[in-house]
Design a protein around this nucleic acid. Sequence first.
DNA 1: ACCTGAACACCGTTCAAGT
DNA 2: ACCTGAACACCGTTCAAGT
Lengths: 235, 235
Amino acid sequence: MAGETGAQDDAAARPVLSRAQVIRTAIWLVDAEGAGALSMRRLGAEIGVEAMALYRYVDGREDLLDAMVDLVSAPVEDAAGKDVGESGGWRAYLWRLGQQIRWMATDHPHIFPLVATRHPAAPWLRPPLRNLDMVEEFLRTLLQCGFSAGQAALVYRTFTSFLLGHLMLTAAELTKATGPAGELPGASSRTLSEFPTIVQMSDLLSEPGRDAEEFDDDLEALLDRIGALVGEPTD
Amino acid sequence: MAGETGAQDDAAARPVLSRAQVIRTAIWLVDAEGAGALSMRRLGAEIGVEAMALYRYVDGREDLLDAMVDLVSAPVEDAAGKDVGESGGWRAYLWRLGQQIRWMATDHPHIFPLVATRHPAAPWLRPPLRNLDMVEEFLRTLLQCGFSAGQAALVYRTFTSFLLGHLMLTAAELTKATGPAGELPGASSRTLSEFPTIVQMSDLLSEPGRDAEEFDDDLEALLDRIGALVGEPTD
DNA sequence: ACCTGAACACCGTTCAAGT
DNA sequence: ACCTGAACACCGTTCAAGT
């Protein structure tokens, strides 16, 4: 029993906290109550500890936010780069990567704006691709599949821009207060009858739950355009 | 002299502030020092007044942020809807609108994330189109130009998603700390030689100042795709 | 009518002190 | 080694009080 990785009744206090627990709790808190609910003091209280104890595991608030983004992005890194060669080449790779990042956005709609807006550490990192490993793999995969360097860079920019545009709107949709649907902005002087075209098209604009299919359609169209770039037959 | 819009030596104190001045100063402050610099107390100090005085002109911090977004978006509304018919139809309209919103992002890169992430007042508002007037005009223009309602709704979603993706990345680029370019994230254990593909392509990924042209190219390609939707010859 | 002082309930962060 | 109390410099917001 004695001589394990740590003696259990040592005079030194074993931590009641861990960095992983702090970060997981922060993510859970923001998922549940929104970004506004996250403060060091509130987070400490949630864990059952004073706020100052967190500073042993996290290098201040900014480091905490970065770590949350990293942890939320972790499944993307894990799942994206599996066996590119046999299972469909760049097309399957980009499809899977896109889906994975979409799941991140829908699983954590309150955190996705952080993924999009926090300053990336390196100059070539374009959100929502947040670290060098992901980008290295992304570019290497495209080069392997026969894209030129210039084409790969173009695909990188196009793909990130596509994901960001789609998923910011998806996340915003998911964090809307689920209040009564037919409300007006200021509830003030202006009335809906001033906007006849919007009223007339309101059913087309609300699109309940159509978001996932639209993402799939648009991603497929994007892959078609990329395929045309390298001279791949569309069908 | 007497009997003007207001007596000049009245016992009632004339305001030293105005709502417009408060909002303009807030925008100026965020442009200059970033969103983190904006607080009611700091803003008051910048104007030369105690923070509490601001509450007479602004209904709290949230209202201030909304008003900043509105003011920054104002040039877009003014310039977008001019004489659609004679000057090129929907294509010229969407081109001008896209450019106008891009200027908003490049003029106020620290404020654009606010435009993108603040909860829109109405359910059909998709950032960066932030108010019902803009959307009403957008849809009416497309219908006038022969788009079906379904097509107009599709174009609305596609266009907003395109702008958001492009301009979030443009704004992020412009708010980067202009530090030394070849830096590593944590400056820690990992070295750039672990990312050979990125190193090899670094010149292609940095693209200095190419952003505007790429936006123009991509917007044009988007308009081509929209044109194909309504059966317009591409060239 | 318009601004201010004082107050309340919060922040992030540091650091000496406790165990 | 790990957590806490006290402290500092900030927040947003309210409200009675001054002019």
